[in-house]
Write a protein that binds this DNA or RNA. Structure first.
Lengths: 195, 195
DNA sequence: ACCTGAACACCGTTCAAGT
DNA sequence: ACCTGAACACCGTTCAAGT
């Protein structure tokens, strides 16, 4: 039974060398994640950053913290995009476009979709990022429902869940075209036309 | 770079003790998978079976072979069920019911959905099981399409992929009710009513 | 023909010793 | 305040020595 280290809120490092090491780690993680997936060995990340493995753990007590450092600002961009799309003429189309962007982000690093979904229940920084994303989705879903474009009983968790599932399928190599799958899924979320 | 051992077609063991060990391993794996998920340590399975780890590897050169030994006959049951459902009055409902059974199987052991999806590309016994399942799904999809109940452009790979994705979501704890999600998904696969 | 378990590789995580 | 890397735990996989 190896307890996974709890995520702790670390203050910004005071010493200049520590800040530099932190930045190097994030950069190394970014490229390593992109090349080898979000489950790349942490020793590999430390090696690429040119620091000891202990230094990595000092800055990022668990893998999710490192993932958050890499994708956190992209999640914020996604949130900002949602705010813009809230003013769109076609709310269902807006939701659809936004989900596509969310899928793109998740597909960017193999294993990210799974990490994000797992973080839905957790406590750390990545979990907070997930909840920011969920709040953004919620606004778009509410808007689409207001206009009558969505089934009344569909929840945000279901919408985001299905989008994550699409991202996961693409990651697994079981789907070439995310757009195609998203279209099928979003069609199922629409208000039934005939009754 | 650790090469994963290739799946090899092993003949049924000749010696009685070997057959007994094999059977014990499958039983131990069945309970271990159910309790701890399909990624339970193989040493744990060997321990429960009361055999050495080397014996496990002799009978099941890779984890997927063990998984197939545990779920293979349930896949065959699924295939048989599909054949019965081919005669149903409501082909879309039949497809829907069958997908539910497929999801139930995958959800039975945590991690099985991922293993099955990954096996879609591979070579071993589990890959063959996946392809039997895919052929069964294909017949049901074709039937539902004939009757005009499905979008004409939907492929079997997409249908099965989305069902696996639903199973994965449930495994991740992101959905309580598989039926609910399957309804949403299947609705997206239906022939659009209004055009 | 089959079994066993020691041996090795790999990776995650901690911590004593350093600056 | 921070860094380092040796040390330990855990698990996958192989293989020499056995029956």
């Amino acid at each position: 039974m190896t307890a996974t280290p709890r995520a702790v809120d670390r203050p910004r490092p005071r010493r200049a060398d520590a800040r530099r090491n932190r930045a190097r780690l994030v950069e190394a993680a970014r490229t390593a994640f992109a090349e080898a997936g979000a489950d790349v060995p942490l020793e590999e990340v430390a090696r690429r950053a040119g620091v000891g493995i202990g230094t990595l753990y000092r800055h990022f007590p668990c893998r999710d913290d490192l993932i958050e450092a890499v994708v956190g600002d992209r999640v914020d961009e996604l949130v900002a995009e949602a705010e813009e799309l809230l003013g769109a003429d076609d709310p269902v189309g807006a939701l659809r476009r936004w989900l596509r962007a969310a899928v793109d982000l998740a597909v960017g690093y193999r294993g990210l979709a799974a990490s994000l979904v797992a973080a839905a229940q957790g406590e750390g920084r990545l979990s907070e990022a997930f909840r920011r994303q969920e709040a953004a989705a919620d606004a778009l879903v509410a808007r689409a429902r207001e206009v009558g474009g969505l089934r009344a009983d569909v929840t945000t968790a279901e919408v985001l869940g299905l989008a994550s599932a699409v991202a996961w399928l693409v990651e697994q190599g079981r789907a070439t075209d995310p757009d195609r799958l998203l279209d099928l899924v979003v069609d199922g979320l629409r208000r039934p036309a005939g009754g």
